[in-house]
Design a protein around this nucleic acid. Structure first.
Length: 539
DNA sequence: TCCCCTGGCACATTTGAATCGC
DNA sequence: AGCGATTCAAATGTGCCAGGGG
């Protein structure tokens, strides 16, 4: 089996090389204190371990276009979808094994940004991380054959800046940089996960990193969104002029909006500046790369080789024409969150785009498994955070204290994603900042949790940035993702008492808290958990 | 004054119920 | 009666804009 694994890894590496996909440095398994044997999860399907799962980012080219311009994602009170949406093609699963796919979005660093002189600049220290939430794919749990049959889309995922968001959307801070992560968790025999042999993989596509904004700052991003998002077709102008503006003003001749003028001025300027504008909208990395080198230096804290960092910091010439062009934006909708499952059937991007780190497994984790079979409503599940409220929660503390819960908060409010470390310098976690700000009460780590967090730290933090940024990376473990110790390390599905560890401020402060689960119970996991609540449930 | 955020707007797409024809 | 295709209105998603607040 090991031979087969080795062969598979070799083939994979070859395919990466052939496809030109750059990868992160493989985490040193020995450094992580993991033996090869321990890296193999307990499984009935020895030939298809979870670390063999391959994930390819769909529409990677589109993501790269945005990444090169410095991806921005609108966040609104009502919640805004991501665009490009997060879609992946998964292979290498055991067709009969059930898996749970979920996404979290973690801070990429501990900075707050501002858009000045047409580039993103550090504007100070990050605000306390929002209550972390997870987006579990509505099809979870499902068999490997199901996941592999078609594209897995997370397009229903929504981002919000509403700290009291009752819809279960992922809460982010505006003007902060974030990194989405995909986790594949193998459900156990009870459609659960969290048992001691639960295995999972984490896949990170660095081109999906973004800065959250309430209105677009970079006109390039606006243009890319308009050009590629079908819902924004109404803002696409014609060659002759902005017909929409013409219609709006009741005129038959084209009227050029301020924005059009603004953007065309910029485009013109870009064009004149060595035809660099051509790369702006069409995403020619070479052109932009060359451009950047001439126009400015990287963020002081950023990996100069990271495209997103580069572009955030230096994607534009800070010339007069570029200076402080601003766009206003927002959304208005009031929506009720995810309605239906979504599994895209479109074709998958041809270029493989993944990275499998050496898996890291541990022997123990949760005393109680989480059953996922109840998630059959095929509705998106956003696992609410558990913000700390001075050790008091609003839920049934007795039940919750005796039952496992999904500690979404702990996970997503952990230290920033270390990919955005100073060049060549391993990321230094900002544990105190992110943890204490949101969860002032230290969680109760179990030994396994501590160990688990150490694994995560090893995977994410001790991987030096020694060469150009990878397109993605992943890590595998036999422990469930997100587990973390009291220092703010990932902890997702471990069992913990409600009071200090399962803060419910979000919902306790919300008058409709009790109705959340009724309206869309799948969102609110932690509330519905009882002593028997180790099961995934949507009712 | 500036920066950021919010609410309202119009438009395009998506969704699902209703209708029609076979 | 059942099924599939078509139509249409409501719901949803989008960026733009003006204005408000810190």
């Amino acid at each position: 089996m090991l031979q087969e694994k080795a062969s598979a890894v070799t083939d994979e590496c070859m395919s990466r090389v052939q496809s030109g996909v750059e990868t992160d440095v493989l985490p040193d398994q020995s450094r992580l204190g993991l033996s090869k044997a321990s890296a193999i999860p307990s499984s009935n399907e020895p030939e298809q371990n979870i670390e063999n799962i391959k994930v390819v980012l769909h529409e990677r080219d589109l993501w790269k276009k945005f990444h090169e311009a410095g991806t921005e994602m609108i966040i609104t009170k009502a919640g805004r979808r991501m665009f490009p949406s997060y879609k992946v093609k998964v292979t290498g699963m055991n067709p009969k094994t059930k898996y749970i796919l979920l996404i979290d979005i973690v801070p990429a660093d501990d900075h707050r940004y501002k858009f000045c002189d047409n580039k993103w600049m550090v504007a100070g220290k990050a605000e306390p991380a929002m209550p972390g939430r997870l987006y579990v794919h509505p099809d979870s749990p499902a068999t490997g054959s199901h996941w592999m049959r078609q594209l897995v889309s997370f397009q229903k995922l929504k981002l919000t800046n509403n700290h009291l968001d009752p819809f279960g959307h992922i809460i982010l801070n505006s003007m902060h940089k974030y990194q989405p992560r995909l986790h594949i968790v193998k459900a156990d025999e009870n459609n659960a996960f969290g048992s001691k042999n639960t295995a999972y993989c984490t896949h990170v596509f660095h081109e999906t990193a973004f800065i959250s904004v309430t209105s677009y700052q970079n006109h390039k991003i606006t243009q890319l969104k308009i050009e590629n998002n079908p819902f924004a077709k109404g803002f696409r102008g014609s060659e002759e002029g902005d017909l929409r503006v013409s219609r709006l003003q009741g005129k038959e001749y084209p009227v050029i909006s301020k924005n059009m003028v603004r953007q065309r001025l910029i485009s013109s300027h870009s064009h004149l500046a060595g035809k660099l504008g051509a790369g702006v909208l069409t995403g020619h990395p070479q052109v932009l790369s060359a451009y950047q080198h001439e126009t400015g230096g990287p963020l002081s804290n950023s990996d100069p080789q990271d495209p997103i960092t580069n572009h955030f910091s230096q994607s534009r010439d800070p010339s007069l024409l570029y200076h402080c062009f601003k766009h206003r934006d927002n959304a208005r909708h009031l929506e009720l969150g995810c309605k239906r499952p979504y599994l895209e059937t479109s074709s998958v991007g041809s270029e493989e785009h993944y990275f499998r780190s050496a898996p890291s497994y541990e022997s123990s984790i949760l005393p109680h498994p989480y059953c996922t079979e109840a998630i059959t409503s095929r509705e998106a599940c956003m696992y609410g955070s558990m913000d700390t409220e001075s050790g008091s929660g609003t839920g049934d503390t007795d039940d919750l204290a005796n039952s496992p819960s999904i500690n979404c908060n702990m996970w997503a409010t952990m230290q920033p994603y270390p990919r955005y470390s100073v060049d060549g310098v391993p990321y230094q976690p900002f544990t105190a900042h992110f943890t204490n700000a949101v969860t002032p009460v230290v969680p109760h780590p179990t030994s396994s949790m501590v160990s688990r967090s150490q694994v995560d730290m090893g995977v994410y933090n001790s991987t030096p940035v020694l060469h150009p940024p990878s397109s993605s990376s992943s890590s595998c473990s036999s422990a469930v993702p997100g587990s973390r110790d009291g220092s703010g390390h990932p902890s997702l599905y471990h069992k913990k008492p409600v009071s200090p560890l399962r803060p419910l401020r979000d919902y306790s402060a919300y008058p409709t808290q009790g109705t959340i689960a009724i309206r869309d119970p799948s969102y609110q996991y932690q509330v519905g958990l009882s002593s028997a609540g180790t099961h995934w449930t949507d009712s």
